[in-house]
Design a protein around this nucleic acid. Structure first.
Lengths: 210, 210
DNA sequence: GTCTATAGCTGGATAGAC
DNA sequence: GTCTATCCAGCTATAGAC
Protein backbone atom coordinates (compact mmCIF):
# COMPACT_ATOMS: atom_id res chain seq x y z
CA UNK A 1 0.00 0.00 0.00
CA UNK A 2 2.63 2.44 1.04
CA UNK A 3 4.68 1.11 -1.83
CA UNK A 4 1.90 1.99 -4.22
CA UNK A 5 1.48 5.43 -2.74
CA UNK A 6 5.17 6.06 -3.20
CA UNK A 7 4.90 4.90 -6.77
CA UNK A 8 2.08 7.33 -7.55
CA UNK A 9 3.88 10.13 -5.83
CA UNK A 10 6.93 9.53 -7.94
CA UNK A 11 4.77 9.39 -11.02
CA UNK A 12 3.07 12.70 -10.37
CA UNK A 13 6.41 14.25 -9.46
CA UNK A 14 7.76 13.00 -12.74
CA UNK A 15 4.79 14.43 -14.63
CA UNK A 16 5.27 17.78 -12.98
CA UNK A 17 8.91 17.68 -13.83
CA UNK A 18 8.13 16.87 -17.41
CA UNK A 19 5.73 19.76 -17.57
CA UNK A 20 8.32 22.16 -16.23
CA UNK A 21 10.84 20.71 -18.63
CA UNK A 22 8.43 21.18 -21.53
CA UNK A 23 7.68 24.72 -20.48
CA UNK A 24 11.35 25.59 -20.31
CA UNK A 25 11.86 23.98 -23.67
CA UNK A 26 9.18 26.21 -25.17
CA UNK A 27 10.78 29.22 -23.50
CA UNK A 28 14.11 28.27 -25.05
CA UNK A 29 12.52 27.97 -28.48
CA UNK A 30 10.77 31.31 -28.01
CA UNK A 31 14.05 33.01 -27.18
CA UNK A 32 15.83 31.28 -30.04
CA UNK A 33 13.14 32.41 -32.46
CA UNK A 34 13.36 35.99 -31.32
CA UNK A 35 17.17 36.15 -31.42
CA UNK A 36 17.29 34.42 -34.80
CA UNK A 37 14.89 37.04 -36.06
CA UNK A 38 17.05 39.93 -34.97
CA UNK A 39 20.65 38.67 -35.32
CA UNK A 40 20.37 35.74 -37.67
CA UNK A 41 22.01 32.36 -37.30
CA UNK A 42 25.69 33.23 -37.50
CA UNK A 43 25.56 36.01 -34.93
CA UNK A 44 23.28 34.22 -32.50
CA UNK A 45 25.33 32.61 -29.73
CA UNK A 46 24.31 29.95 -27.26
CA UNK A 47 25.18 32.46 -24.52
CA UNK A 48 22.59 34.83 -25.97
CA UNK A 49 19.93 32.16 -25.78
CA UNK A 50 20.87 30.99 -22.28
CA UNK A 51 20.90 34.54 -20.97
CA UNK A 52 17.55 35.38 -22.59
CA UNK A 53 15.94 32.33 -20.99
CA UNK A 54 17.68 32.88 -17.68
CA UNK A 55 19.49 29.56 -17.52
CA UNK A 56 23.10 28.54 -17.88
CA UNK A 57 24.65 27.32 -21.06
CA UNK A 58 25.16 23.72 -19.88
CA UNK A 59 21.47 23.55 -18.97
CA UNK A 60 20.66 24.69 -22.45
CA UNK A 61 22.73 21.81 -23.80
CA UNK A 62 20.67 19.38 -21.68
CA UNK A 63 17.71 20.32 -23.85
CA UNK A 64 19.38 20.60 -27.25
CA UNK A 65 22.61 18.88 -28.01
CA UNK A 66 23.90 21.49 -30.44
CA UNK A 67 23.22 24.88 -31.89
CA UNK A 68 22.17 23.27 -35.13
CA UNK A 69 19.61 21.05 -33.42
CA UNK A 70 18.25 24.00 -31.45
CA UNK A 71 17.74 26.11 -34.54
CA UNK A 72 16.29 23.16 -36.41
CA UNK A 73 13.68 22.63 -33.71
CA UNK A 74 12.75 26.31 -33.68
CA UNK A 75 12.20 26.21 -37.42
CA UNK A 76 10.23 22.98 -37.21
CA UNK A 77 7.90 24.57 -34.68
CA UNK A 78 7.42 27.48 -37.06
CA UNK A 79 6.62 25.23 -39.99
CA UNK A 80 4.14 23.29 -37.87
CA UNK A 81 2.51 26.60 -36.98
CA UNK A 82 2.11 27.37 -40.67
CA UNK A 83 0.58 23.94 -41.30
CA UNK A 84 -1.87 24.45 -38.45
CA UNK A 85 -2.73 27.94 -39.69
CA UNK A 86 -3.46 26.54 -43.15
CA UNK A 87 -5.61 23.81 -41.66
CA UNK A 88 -7.62 26.40 -39.75
CA UNK A 89 -8.47 28.49 -42.80
CA UNK A 90 -12.02 28.64 -44.13
CA UNK A 91 -12.32 25.80 -46.63
CA UNK A 92 -14.43 28.05 -48.85
CA UNK A 93 -11.45 30.30 -49.60
CA UNK A 94 -9.99 30.07 -53.10
CA UNK A 95 -6.48 28.61 -53.46
CA UNK A 96 -5.07 32.04 -54.23
CA UNK A 97 -6.80 33.59 -51.24
CA UNK A 98 -5.32 30.89 -49.01
CA UNK A 99 -1.84 31.57 -50.34
CA UNK A 100 -2.27 35.29 -49.77
CA UNK A 101 -3.61 34.81 -46.27
CA UNK A 102 -0.80 32.48 -45.24
CA UNK A 103 1.85 34.86 -46.58
CA UNK A 104 0.21 37.72 -44.73
CA UNK A 105 0.38 35.64 -41.56
CA UNK A 106 4.08 34.88 -42.12
CA UNK A 107 4.91 38.51 -42.86
CA UNK A 108 3.15 39.66 -39.71
CA UNK A 109 5.08 37.14 -37.61
CA UNK A 110 8.28 38.39 -39.18
CA UNK A 111 7.40 42.02 -38.48
CA UNK A 112 6.73 41.17 -34.86
CA UNK A 113 10.25 39.85 -34.39
CA UNK A 114 9.94 36.32 -35.66
CA UNK A 115 11.80 34.50 -38.37
CA UNK A 116 11.15 33.71 -42.00
CA UNK A 117 10.10 30.09 -42.30
CA UNK A 118 12.25 29.53 -45.29
CA UNK A 119 14.52 29.41 -47.21
CA UNK A 120 17.54 30.74 -45.47
CA UNK A 121 19.59 33.36 -47.19
CA UNK A 122 22.81 31.82 -45.92
CA UNK A 123 24.31 28.85 -47.73
CA UNK A 124 25.58 27.55 -44.41
CA UNK A 125 22.12 27.45 -42.83
CA UNK A 126 20.55 26.06 -45.97
CA UNK A 127 22.98 23.13 -46.05
CA UNK A 128 22.49 22.50 -42.36
CA UNK A 129 18.73 22.26 -42.85
CA UNK A 130 19.06 19.99 -45.86
CA UNK A 131 20.93 17.54 -43.61
CA UNK A 132 18.26 17.74 -40.91
CA UNK A 133 15.89 14.89 -41.71
CA UNK A 134 13.25 15.84 -39.17
CA UNK A 135 13.17 19.37 -40.48
CA UNK A 136 12.95 18.25 -44.08
CA UNK A 137 10.07 15.93 -43.26
CA UNK A 138 8.02 18.74 -41.79
CA UNK A 139 9.03 21.09 -44.54
CA UNK A 140 7.89 18.71 -47.28
CA UNK A 141 4.57 18.32 -45.54
CA UNK A 142 4.00 22.05 -45.79
CA UNK A 143 5.55 22.28 -49.21
CA UNK A 144 3.30 19.67 -50.81
CA UNK A 145 0.23 21.52 -49.54
CA UNK A 146 1.49 24.79 -50.95
CA UNK A 147 2.32 23.14 -54.23
CA UNK A 148 -1.25 21.85 -54.51
CA UNK A 149 -2.56 25.33 -53.82
CA UNK A 150 -0.35 26.83 -56.52
CA UNK A 151 -1.44 24.21 -59.05
CA UNK A 152 -5.08 24.74 -58.18
CA UNK A 153 -4.70 28.50 -58.43
CA UNK A 154 -3.11 28.15 -61.85
CA UNK A 155 -6.00 25.96 -63.03
CA UNK A 156 -8.37 28.66 -61.75
CA UNK A 157 -6.49 31.32 -63.67
CA UNK A 158 -5.86 33.02 -60.33
CA UNK A 159 -2.14 32.59 -60.92
CA UNK A 160 -0.20 32.88 -64.16
CA UNK A 161 0.04 29.43 -65.73
CA UNK A 162 3.09 30.32 -67.78
CA UNK A 163 5.23 30.61 -64.65
CA UNK A 164 6.88 27.35 -63.54
CA UNK A 165 5.53 26.09 -60.22
CA UNK A 166 9.03 26.10 -58.73
CA UNK A 167 9.45 29.76 -59.55
CA UNK A 168 6.22 30.67 -57.79
CA UNK A 169 6.84 28.46 -54.77
CA UNK A 170 10.43 29.50 -54.19
CA UNK A 171 9.65 33.17 -54.72
CA UNK A 172 6.76 32.78 -52.30
CA UNK A 173 9.07 31.41 -49.59
CA UNK A 174 11.62 34.09 -50.38
CA UNK A 175 9.11 36.84 -49.57
CA UNK A 176 9.14 35.65 -45.95
CA UNK A 177 12.85 36.37 -45.65
CA UNK A 178 12.89 39.41 -47.91
CA UNK A 179 15.10 42.18 -46.47
CA UNK A 180 12.62 44.65 -47.94
CA UNK A 181 10.57 44.14 -44.79
CA UNK A 182 13.29 45.39 -42.47
CA UNK A 183 14.36 48.17 -44.77
CA UNK A 184 10.83 49.51 -45.03
CA UNK A 185 10.58 49.37 -41.26
CA UNK A 186 13.85 51.20 -40.74
CA UNK A 187 13.87 53.72 -43.55
CA UNK A 188 10.22 54.31 -44.41
CA UNK A 189 8.70 53.92 -40.97
CA UNK A 190 5.55 52.52 -42.52
CA UNK A 191 3.02 50.80 -40.32
CA UNK A 192 3.07 47.02 -40.27
CA UNK A 193 -0.23 46.95 -42.11
CA UNK A 194 1.06 49.17 -44.90
CA UNK A 195 4.25 47.14 -45.25
CA UNK A 196 2.22 43.95 -45.54
CA UNK A 197 -0.20 45.52 -48.02
CA UNK A 198 2.65 46.69 -50.25
CA UNK A 199 4.59 43.44 -49.98
CA UNK A 200 1.51 41.48 -51.03
CA UNK A 201 0.91 43.83 -53.95
CA UNK A 202 4.50 43.54 -55.17
CA UNK A 203 4.48 39.77 -54.73
CA UNK A 204 1.29 39.03 -56.59
CA UNK A 205 0.99 41.95 -58.97
CA UNK A 206 4.58 43.12 -59.36
CA UNK A 207 5.70 46.72 -59.84
CA UNK A 208 3.41 47.53 -62.73
CA UNK A 209 0.58 45.16 -61.93
CA UNK A 210 -3.10 46.02 -62.12
CA UNK B 1 73.09 64.55 -64.80
CA UNK B 2 73.53 61.20 -63.11
CA UNK B 3 71.48 62.53 -60.26
CA UNK B 4 68.69 63.22 -62.68
CA UNK B 5 68.97 59.79 -64.23
CA UNK B 6 68.71 58.21 -60.80
CA UNK B 7 65.67 60.31 -60.05
CA UNK B 8 63.85 59.17 -63.19
CA UNK B 9 64.81 55.62 -62.53
CA UNK B 10 63.32 55.81 -59.06
CA UNK B 11 60.25 57.41 -60.46
CA UNK B 12 59.63 54.72 -63.04
CA UNK B 13 60.39 52.03 -60.51
CA UNK B 14 57.82 53.63 -58.24
CA UNK B 15 55.28 53.73 -61.04
CA UNK B 16 55.87 50.09 -61.79
CA UNK B 17 55.47 49.26 -58.15
CA UNK B 18 52.25 51.21 -58.01
CA UNK B 19 50.95 49.34 -61.00
CA UNK B 20 51.76 46.00 -59.46
CA UNK B 21 50.19 47.18 -56.23
CA UNK B 22 47.07 48.27 -58.06
CA UNK B 23 46.87 44.98 -59.91
CA UNK B 24 47.15 43.00 -56.71
CA UNK B 25 44.54 45.19 -55.14
CA UNK B 26 42.14 44.39 -57.96
CA UNK B 27 42.95 40.70 -57.57
CA UNK B 28 42.14 40.95 -53.88
CA UNK B 29 38.84 42.63 -54.63
CA UNK B 30 38.03 40.00 -57.26
CA UNK B 31 38.65 37.21 -54.77
CA UNK B 32 36.67 39.00 -52.08
CA UNK B 33 33.74 39.45 -54.44
CA UNK B 34 33.74 35.81 -55.40
CA UNK B 35 33.99 34.50 -51.84
CA UNK B 36 31.35 36.94 -50.63
CA UNK B 37 29.09 35.64 -53.35
CA UNK B 38 29.45 32.05 -52.29
CA UNK B 39 29.88 32.17 -48.50
CA UNK B 40 28.54 35.55 -47.50
CA UNK B 41 30.13 38.03 -45.13
CA UNK B 42 30.05 36.13 -41.85
CA UNK B 43 31.60 32.97 -43.23
CA UNK B 44 34.22 34.67 -45.37
CA UNK B 45 37.55 34.73 -43.53
CA UNK B 46 40.61 36.81 -44.24
CA UNK B 47 42.48 33.53 -44.60
CA UNK B 48 40.12 32.56 -47.39
CA UNK B 49 40.86 35.76 -49.24
CA UNK B 50 44.61 35.60 -48.73
CA UNK B 51 44.73 32.01 -49.89
CA UNK B 52 42.59 32.71 -52.96
CA UNK B 53 44.89 35.56 -53.98
CA UNK B 54 48.03 33.64 -53.13
CA UNK B 55 49.42 36.08 -50.59
CA UNK B 56 49.78 35.99 -46.84
CA UNK B 57 47.32 37.48 -44.44
CA UNK B 58 49.64 40.29 -43.25
CA UNK B 59 50.13 41.32 -46.88
CA UNK B 60 46.40 41.48 -47.24
CA UNK B 61 46.27 43.82 -44.28
CA UNK B 62 48.79 46.10 -46.00
CA UNK B 63 46.12 46.76 -48.61
CA UNK B 64 43.02 46.88 -46.42
CA UNK B 65 43.18 47.64 -42.76
CA UNK B 66 40.22 45.50 -41.76
CA UNK B 67 37.71 43.00 -43.04
CA UNK B 68 35.04 45.67 -42.96
CA UNK B 69 37.08 48.03 -45.12
CA UNK B 70 37.87 45.25 -47.58
CA UNK B 71 34.24 44.32 -48.02
CA UNK B 72 33.25 47.96 -48.24
CA UNK B 73 35.68 48.54 -51.09
CA UNK B 74 34.46 45.46 -52.95
CA UNK B 75 30.89 46.72 -52.72
CA UNK B 76 31.90 50.23 -53.75
CA UNK B 77 33.54 48.83 -56.87
CA UNK B 78 30.34 46.96 -57.63
CA UNK B 79 28.17 50.04 -57.21
CA UNK B 80 30.50 52.01 -59.45
CA UNK B 81 30.13 49.28 -62.04
CA UNK B 82 26.37 49.67 -61.91
CA UNK B 83 26.66 53.43 -62.32
CA UNK B 84 28.93 52.96 -65.32
CA UNK B 85 26.58 50.39 -66.81
CA UNK B 86 23.66 52.80 -66.44
CA UNK B 87 25.68 55.57 -68.04
CA UNK B 88 26.46 53.33 -71.00
CA UNK B 89 22.84 52.48 -71.74
CA UNK B 90 21.14 53.77 -74.88
CA UNK B 91 19.63 57.12 -73.92
CA UNK B 92 16.59 56.32 -76.07
CA UNK B 93 15.51 53.55 -73.70
CA UNK B 94 12.45 54.23 -71.59
CA UNK B 95 12.93 54.56 -67.81
CA UNK B 96 11.31 51.18 -67.23
CA UNK B 97 13.46 49.53 -69.85
CA UNK B 98 16.57 50.95 -68.19
CA UNK B 99 15.48 49.60 -64.83
CA UNK B 100 14.83 46.17 -66.32
CA UNK B 101 18.13 46.11 -68.16
CA UNK B 102 20.14 47.09 -65.09
CA UNK B 103 18.43 44.45 -62.96
CA UNK B 104 19.12 41.86 -65.63
CA UNK B 105 22.77 42.87 -65.54
CA UNK B 106 22.89 42.57 -61.75
CA UNK B 107 21.15 39.18 -61.76
CA UNK B 108 23.58 37.85 -64.35
CA UNK B 109 26.54 39.00 -62.28
CA UNK B 110 25.04 37.29 -59.28
CA UNK B 111 24.47 34.06 -61.21
CA UNK B 112 28.08 34.10 -62.32
CA UNK B 113 29.32 34.11 -58.74
CA UNK B 114 29.18 37.77 -57.87
CA UNK B 115 27.40 39.55 -55.09
CA UNK B 116 24.13 41.41 -54.75
CA UNK B 117 24.85 45.09 -54.76
CA UNK B 118 22.47 45.76 -52.00
CA UNK B 119 20.91 45.70 -49.43
CA UNK B 120 22.44 43.07 -47.28
CA UNK B 121 20.22 40.48 -45.69
CA UNK B 122 22.28 40.58 -42.52
CA UNK B 123 21.66 43.30 -39.96
CA UNK B 124 25.35 43.22 -39.09
CA UNK B 125 26.48 43.96 -42.63
CA UNK B 126 23.77 46.54 -43.11
CA UNK B 127 24.88 48.48 -40.04
CA UNK B 128 28.50 48.21 -41.07
CA UNK B 129 27.71 49.75 -44.46
CA UNK B 130 25.61 52.51 -42.94
CA UNK B 131 28.70 53.55 -40.98
CA UNK B 132 30.91 53.50 -44.09
CA UNK B 133 30.77 57.05 -45.40
CA UNK B 134 32.59 56.33 -48.63
CA UNK B 135 30.24 53.47 -49.39
CA UNK B 136 27.17 55.53 -48.58
CA UNK B 137 28.35 58.32 -50.86
CA UNK B 138 28.65 55.99 -53.82
CA UNK B 139 25.43 54.25 -52.94
CA UNK B 140 23.47 57.51 -52.86
CA UNK B 141 24.85 58.44 -56.23
CA UNK B 142 23.38 55.27 -57.71
CA UNK B 143 20.25 55.48 -55.63
CA UNK B 144 19.31 58.97 -56.74
CA UNK B 145 19.59 57.92 -60.38
CA UNK B 146 17.38 54.90 -59.79
CA UNK B 147 14.90 57.04 -57.91
CA UNK B 148 14.63 59.39 -60.88
CA UNK B 149 14.04 56.43 -63.18
CA UNK B 150 11.28 55.09 -60.96
CA UNK B 151 9.59 58.48 -60.79
CA UNK B 152 9.83 58.91 -64.55
CA UNK B 153 8.46 55.41 -65.13
CA UNK B 154 5.52 56.13 -62.85
CA UNK B 155 4.78 59.34 -64.77
CA UNK B 156 4.88 57.27 -67.97
CA UNK B 157 2.45 54.75 -66.51
CA UNK B 158 5.13 52.15 -67.04
CA UNK B 159 5.13 51.53 -63.28
CA UNK B 160 2.20 51.51 -60.89
CA UNK B 161 1.80 55.01 -59.44
CA UNK B 162 -0.05 53.79 -56.37
CA UNK B 163 3.06 52.03 -55.07
CA UNK B 164 5.31 54.22 -52.88
CA UNK B 165 8.67 54.93 -54.48
CA UNK B 166 10.46 53.44 -51.48
CA UNK B 167 8.62 50.17 -51.88
CA UNK B 168 9.63 49.87 -55.52
CA UNK B 169 13.23 50.92 -54.95
CA UNK B 170 13.86 48.70 -51.94
CA UNK B 171 12.14 45.72 -53.55
CA UNK B 172 14.23 46.34 -56.65
CA UNK B 173 17.45 46.17 -54.64
CA UNK B 174 16.16 43.14 -52.79
CA UNK B 175 15.80 41.19 -56.02
CA UNK B 176 19.60 41.32 -56.43
CA UNK B 177 20.08 39.42 -53.15
CA UNK B 178 17.01 37.22 -53.46
CA UNK B 179 17.76 33.63 -52.38
CA UNK B 180 15.33 32.54 -55.08
CA UNK B 181 18.23 32.81 -57.51
CA UNK B 182 20.33 30.21 -55.73
CA UNK B 183 17.42 27.95 -55.00
CA UNK B 184 16.37 27.88 -58.62
CA UNK B 185 19.96 27.09 -59.57
CA UNK B 186 20.24 24.27 -57.06
CA UNK B 187 16.80 22.69 -57.16
CA UNK B 188 15.41 23.51 -60.60
CA UNK B 189 18.60 23.43 -62.61
CA UNK B 190 17.22 26.09 -64.91
CA UNK B 191 19.55 27.87 -67.28
CA UNK B 192 20.77 31.30 -66.26
CA UNK B 193 18.68 32.87 -68.99
CA UNK B 194 15.50 31.19 -67.80
CA UNK B 195 16.16 32.14 -64.20
CA UNK B 196 16.63 35.76 -65.21
CA UNK B 197 13.55 35.73 -67.40
CA UNK B 198 11.41 34.36 -64.59
CA UNK B 199 12.88 36.66 -61.96
CA UNK B 200 12.15 39.67 -64.14
CA UNK B 201 8.59 38.48 -64.74
CA UNK B 202 7.93 37.96 -61.04
CA UNK B 203 9.52 41.29 -60.16
CA UNK B 204 7.64 43.44 -62.62
CA UNK B 205 4.42 41.49 -63.18
CA UNK B 206 4.11 39.40 -60.02
CA UNK B 207 2.67 35.90 -59.81
CA UNK B 208 -0.57 36.62 -61.60
CA UNK B 209 0.51 39.51 -63.80
CA UNK B 210 -0.49 39.69 -67.44
C1' DG C 1 19.70 18.79 -13.46
C1' DT C 2 21.88 22.93 -12.28
C1' DC C 3 25.79 25.58 -11.93
C1' DT C 4 31.19 27.41 -12.35
C1' DA C 5 35.00 26.84 -14.86
C1' DT C 6 37.43 25.65 -18.76
C1' DA C 7 38.93 23.01 -22.83
C1' DG C 8 39.53 23.48 -27.72
C1' DC C 9 39.15 25.91 -31.72
C1' DT C 10 38.64 29.60 -35.05
C1' DG C 11 39.34 33.93 -37.00
C1' DG C 12 40.70 38.99 -36.91
C1' DA C 13 44.68 41.45 -36.40
C1' DT C 14 49.83 42.23 -35.53
C1' DA C 15 55.01 41.72 -34.15
C1' DG C 16 59.21 41.23 -35.94
C1' DA C 17 62.58 38.98 -39.08
C1' DC C 18 64.11 39.49 -43.82
C1' DG D 1 56.31 44.90 -48.57
C1' DT D 2 56.49 40.12 -47.79
C1' DC D 3 56.56 36.36 -44.92
C1' DT D 4 56.31 33.07 -40.27
C1' DA D 5 54.71 32.94 -36.01
C1' DT D 6 51.68 34.47 -32.65
C1' DC D 7 48.36 37.10 -29.77
C1' DC D 8 43.78 37.58 -28.23
C1' DA D 9 38.79 37.61 -28.23
C1' DG D 10 34.79 35.05 -28.66
C1' DC D 11 32.37 30.94 -29.58
C1' DT D 12 30.77 25.91 -29.21
C1' DA D 13 30.76 22.36 -26.25
C1' DT D 14 31.86 19.77 -21.92
C1' DA D 15 34.03 18.30 -17.31
C1' DG D 16 33.14 18.06 -12.72
C1' DA D 17 31.34 19.90 -8.25
C1' DC D 18 26.94 20.21 -5.88
Amino acid sequence: MSGRKLEMSNLSKSILKDQAFQLREQAILDATTSILGSKGYDLMTMDDVAKAVGISKPSLYKHFKSKEELVGEALIRLIDGAIQYLAGLDVALSPLKKLITLLEWALRIRLEGGIPFLPSTSAHVRDMLLRNIKYMTHFFQLNSQLEQLVIAAQKNNELNSSLPIDVILISYYARTCDPTIEHLQIFSQMSHDDIIKNMLHVTFKGFNGL
